[in-house]
């Protein structure tokens, strides 16, 4: 059996605002296997996004350990963490966060500028990513010329273009209509199944979470329930 890709042990995150101390995540233990599609659910303030941000390397734990691919992510310096993020993680945002002054192609190309590669190699990778999300014909369009679903597809292409092992998605369908949301979920599921990406997704929507292989429920910073999805990523009822 393979080792977990992500290992959280007593993972705690505390914020101090004035005299108030907030602990959105408290002593969390979690293992995520390579290629796993994990959904994080729970009420607002339950710590879902905090956990997602810690795994994505854009926040640091206050205590506990977080090992990803054997690397103690919490112990990396700011610049090393930035380098690690660029290689290991693709982030999919609820509001897409595309750069409005860049075309779809240029948005997808952005993460590759952090890596040493030839222009031709970069071009082929961007083209492949756009093709994978089915948006090749919109490559020259600016975000304002795209629908919400198309924007999210571009954002997904941007997340996968550098071929990271982990994809994190924060409410990826939260701003989409039902049909677009279903299409995006189908795409994410395909990425997990066919490309072997480890996918961790925050969602309030049980229908979206049902695409995951495993669902975690968090409340007040603690893991309250592990559940296998009713419709797994592989489409198997468990």
């Amino acid at each position: 059996m393979s080792e977990p890709l992500i290992q959280c042990r007593s993972l705690t995150r505390t914020y101090t605002r004035g005299t108030e101390t907030i602990t959105p995540l408290e002593r969390l233990d979690l293992d995520v296997m390579p290629g796993e599609f994990l959904a994080l659910m729970g009420p607002s303030g339950s710590g879902k996004t905090t956990l997602l941000n810690l795994i994505a390397g854009i926040d640091r734990p206050t205590s506990g350990t977080l090992h990803i691919g054997g690397i103690d992510v919490g112990g990396l310096s700011r610049s090393r963490l930035a380098d690690w993020r660029s290689r290991a993680v693709g982030y999919i945002f609820q509001l897409y966060n595309l750069v409005p002054v860049l075309t779809a192609y240029e948005n997808v190309e952005l993460p590759l500028l952090l890596h040493r590669m030839s222009g031709a190699d970069r071009h082929s990778r961007v083209a492949a990513a756009l093709d994978l999300v089915g948006i090749t014909d919109r490559a020259d369009h600016y975000p304002r010329q795209l629908s919400g679903g198309q924007e999210q597809r571009v954002a997904i292409a941007r997340a996968i273009v550098a071929d990271p092992a982990i994809l994190v998605a924060d409410e990826p369908t939260g701003d989409l209509d039902k049909a677009s949301a279903a299409a995006i979920m189908e795409l994410l599921g395909r990425l997990s199944r066919e490309a072997g990406k480890t996918l961790i997704m925050v969602s309030h929507d049980p229908a979206c979470a049902a695409h995951a292989g495993r669902i975690l429920h968090l409340d007040k910073g603690r893991l309250v329930e592990h559940a296998a999805a009713t419709v797994g990523a592989a489409g198997v009822t468990t």
Partner: peptide
């Protein structure tokens, strides 16, 4: 600011 955060998220220093 959100876009600047996204760029850092991608790995830009």
């Amino acid at each position: 600011v959100r876009e600047l955060g996204m760029l850092q998220c991608l790995g830009f220093r």
